[in-house]
Write a protein that binds this DNA or RNA. Structure first.
Lengths: 238, 238
DNA sequence: CAGTGGTCTAGACCACAGT
DNA sequence: CTGTGGTCTAGACCACTGA
């Protein structure tokens, strides 16, 4: 599958995003004005604005009429409520992912929280779980379900320290477009999850149920997350 | 300054949004195509597309190249993660708001979770709390802090069953533009909050700390929420 | 194939912030 | 005042869907 053409606004977005993340701009700094960016990259203003819209929607900048685009700091993975430490910010360095249960083809759980199409029910799903650790400490346990539709050799893939989204994009041409999630606070669930997250049974835990949209029509990813927020909060913008 | 001119794309967005919420379109229905909407409302395509972008970002529609804009099912939880959800209570009837502590001018709490500018510290803040009830049952306890900057007669206002955002917009010309939040699961906090939410002391509760951006430069609203998710999930899109 | 949304251009006028 | 971002127009070509 070819990488696919990258839109100009997207390329500019990623360039500016990298500059912000890498610290070329600091919190409170002004980005070049829209007209300056036009000249710098040989683009027209709507295209530049679309790139800035993305940065704005993801919280990297805030725009102010008459002033400019102000850098707002902050990391954020695509569509994820990223983790933010209570004391120190978390870079990509100390974030680790371990596969606990490797992908297996199975049928959907009877108590699955999302309604499934007939097609999804019929083909069953890949099921696998991963543990996210911050500075070596377990924080998020992620149970993923992917409909078993045209993903050859997926069960053989190693997901450790790799982005599931990147694998889906590069190997299968599937792009994540967004999603929805339901969030609850619960007391720690089954004992095995407690031990994986290294928490006592009565610990309060965040429980997230997510359905993730892709560029394939009627193809969704599902995941259920348990998150120990004792040391870190989930962070989101809106 | 008067209520402020409403942009064309915004007007179209609100019209379509109302049609979806009112059930004129159902889940899975196709919206009129972009070109049809252009003709119907005498707008150009970029303007129409901007309205659709808003609907898309808030989860009301999903667009598919070659197919059209598909109406998405409405969220069943409480849309506190999305900006539009708080004002109009998507998907939930019987949402009620009661003021528990009326607005009082005070100083900022010593353990305030967000860093404040010197100006904010100097002027102090309005503090008030509200309780959100769904079908008569308490669900969210909302502790709000607003910097005491040029908001005449605010303490005299009645906030019951009114949108704080609407009051700020109509009476003071302040528009909410977005915000950020930190989310944790905790065991139920102080006893008075437990009794207000009608929960036992060991109940797990969602804890949200939010900073909300406005169209006024360096003017933010702050609120701390405790949410009993025993009966309802919080819902969000990304 | 026709129609859809996705991207992009090249202009225009306005409202607001800082000087 | 100048320069900023906010809004809007009127075209164009492409990639994808469904028939």
């Amino acid at each position: 599958m070819s990488p696919g053409r990258i839109p100009l606004y997207r390329a500019l977005y990623e360039k500016l995003r990298r500059h912000i993340v890498d610290g070329l701009y600091r919190e409170g700094d002004l980005l070049p004005s829209e007209n300056e960016l036009c000249k710098l990259h040989n683009l027209t203003r709507p295209t530049v604005r679309k790139a800035l819209d993305l940065l704005n929607n993801e919280g990297f900048i805030k725009r102010h009429q008459g002033l400019g685009s102000v850098v707002h700091k902050l990391p954020k993975g695509i569509g994820i409520l990223s983790i933010s430490g209570t004391t120190t910010a978390i870079g990509r360095d100390n974030l680790e992912t371990r596969t606990i249960i490797k992908p297996v083809l199975t049928s959907w759980p009877p108590d699955f929280p999302f309604s499934l199409s007939d097609n999804e029910k019929e083909v069953g799903c890949m099921n696998f779980t991963r543990l996210r650790l911050v500075s070596g400490k377990p924080v998020i346990y992620d149970i993923s379900y992917i409909p078993n539709i045209n993903l050859p050799r997926f069960t053989a893939r190693n997901l450790d320290n790799k982005s599931l989204f990147n694998i889906l994009r590069t190997a299968y041409g599937i792009e994540v477009k967004g999603g929805e999630q339901y969030i609850k606070a619960i007391n720690a669930p089954e004992p095995d999850i407690c031990s994986i997250l290294d928490i006592r049974p009565e610990t309060p835990v965040l429980h997230l149920q997510r359905r993730i949209d892709t560029n394939r029509l009627n193809f969704y990813l599902y995941s259920i997350l348990y998150c120990n927020t004792g040391g870190h909060s989930l962070y989101g913008i809106f």
